[in-house]
């Protein structure tokens, strides 16, 4: 096993409506694609945002590459953020900026002295990588959700991050675009980047997961490599995994073996 990239230690998150999770521990490892699965509303997206330092938990701590998000100095947090990228479930593009400006802003904000030609090349390169058509001057409101997700992906990778957080990247998009996004995730995985991905889609898990954590009602029911989790005998885990494993037949014979051995 490689070194931990992100450690969530004794996490708790309370809202005005109640406790989303308490005393939760989870580790995501460097260079691996970790998938967090679970039913809607179980706290996956909140957990992902805590791991990425976008939300401060009400208890416990999230440590990103040795840096605790809640206690680190602002400059170090800023540096850490430049080593990561985040793709939001709803894309979360800046509505008052064009597609170009959405992708360009992180670059020009952090590198005010970067040559314009260099900025242009990086923006175009990120657009090419995600297969974005020439819609640079469009506003996000004029794009489909699929296109918005591609722009969000391009924005997340324009500065070549080492860690990528993906919040349900394939939700609400057509199969063609889903295939494209899965291809991108696989490409990043192939480059040895750390990927933390939240999804409800068994196809995604079956295809890209190295490690898997299964979550329900604010609790981690099982975590480990995909094969380890597949051996779990907890009925709730099996319920969630059945869908994954049936999808996995399309992608890998090994997973089917695990299913027959593990259950």
């Amino acid at each position: 096993m490689t070194s931990p990239a992100i450690e969530l230690q004794n996490l708790a998150f309370h809202t005005g409506q109640g406790t989303l999770f308490a005393d939760l521990n989870l580790t995501f490892f460097t260079g691996r694609c970790s998938v967090l699965m679970g039913p809607a509303g179980c706290g996956k997206s909140t957990l992902l945002k805590i791991a990425a330092g976008l939300i401060i938990p009400t208890g416990g701590r999230a440590v990103f590459e040795g840096l605790a998000w809640d206690t680190a100095a602002e400059e170090r947090v800023l540096e850490a953020r430049q080593r990561s990228g985040f793709v939001f479930q709803n894309a979360a593009l800046w509505a008052n900026k064009s597609v170009w400006q959405n992708i360009e802003l992180p670059l020009v904000f952090h590198n005010p002295k970067m040559e314009k030609s260099q900025v242009d090349e990086k923006v175009r390169s990120a657009g090419r990588k995600v297969g974005l058509r020439e819609i640079w001057n469009e506003r996000p409101a004029h794009l489909s959700l699929g296109e918005q997700k591609l722009v969000s992906f391009a924005r997340a990778i324009v500065h070549d991050p080492q860690v990528l957080f993906l919040d349900d990247p394939t939700a609400g998009i057509d199969s063609q675009l889903k295939e494209k996004l899965l291809g991108l995730i696989e490409e990043f995985r192939g480059l040895g980047k750390t990927i933390v991905l939240v999804t409800q889609d068994p196809t995604v898990t079956a295809r890209v997961a190295d490690d898997l954590a299964v979550m329900k009602n604010g609790k981690i029911l099982s975590q480990g490599t995909l094969s380890e989790v597949a051996r779990n005998t907890d009925p709730e885990v099996i319920d969630i995994l059945t869908a994954v494993l049936s999808q996995a037949a399309t992608f890998s014979g090994d997973i089917l073996d695990l299913l027959s051995n593990g259950s």
Binding site: K49, F109, R155
Partner: peptide, 9 residues
């Protein structure tokens, strides 16, 4: 949150 995610305060 998107601003925070790209390191912009």
């Amino acid at each position: 949150e998107a601003y925070l995610a790209v390191g912009i305060n």
